[in-house]
Simulated scan of single mutants.
Amino acid sequence: MATIYRPGWLYVLGYAALTGVTIGLAAVVGWVLSGVLIGDPTLDDIGIVPIALGVGAFAMAVVNLRKRKLTVVREGVVMERDGARISLFWTDFEELRVKTTPHREELVFGPGLVQPAGAGGLRRGVEARLRKSGADRTVPLTTYFADWRQTELGPAVARAQARQAR
């Protein structure tokens, strides 16, 4: 039976807040720099534009991150992100990678099967971008789980590691 997981709210809200603040600050810096070139900007001139851009970026990040899915099936895992469905198989499992700064765990597989998640097909360049970034072969566990070892993924990873050790 397949189990579907979505990114945790702590990750989603933290990432979205960082995105919103960055976009808002970029708008302020852009406004100030354009004022330096054109005239003398004041804080009154900036107004609500950076706040609106920051809130908009925050909302878009929340929606886009909550669209992501990780499905654990008998044959492996299936991730959905950026309009693509990435199938990763236990037979292609390579390692459990642990990064310490910040603490992050991810499963690494051989290159996965990238297909469109919907009927519309993949947007241009999505598959190349996923492959270039390594997203077609890694599963960021800390994005989806507080403790993945306590789910059905824990025993599945242990079986894949044992199969690989043989």
Rank of each mutant, 00 (worst) to 15 (best):
K69G: 01
N64I: 11
L70S: 03
V36F: 15
T42M: 06
V77H: 01
G39A: 13
L65W: 05
A57W: 10
A59P: 04
R66L: 07
L70Y: 05
V63Y: 14
A61F: 15
M60K: 13
R68G: 04
V36G: 09
A84T: 08
I86F: 01
L43G: 14
M79R: 13
D45K: 12
P50S: 11
P41I: 11
R68E: 15
V55R: 04
V55Y: 05
R81A: 12
L65G: 00
E75A: 10
V77I: 03
M60I: 15
R85G: 03
M79H: 02
P50V: 03
G39H: 10
V73N: 03
I48Q: 13
L37H: 12
P41H: 10
L37D: 13
D82E: 07
P41R: 10
K67H: 14
I48C: 07
G54Y: 02
I38Y: 06
D44F: 11
A61Y: 15
A59G: 07
G54L: 03
A59E: 06
K67I: 06
D40Q: 15
G54R: 00
M79F: 05
M60W: 13
V78P: 00
D45C: 04
P50W: 09
G56Y: 06
D45L: 12
V55S: 08
E75V: 08
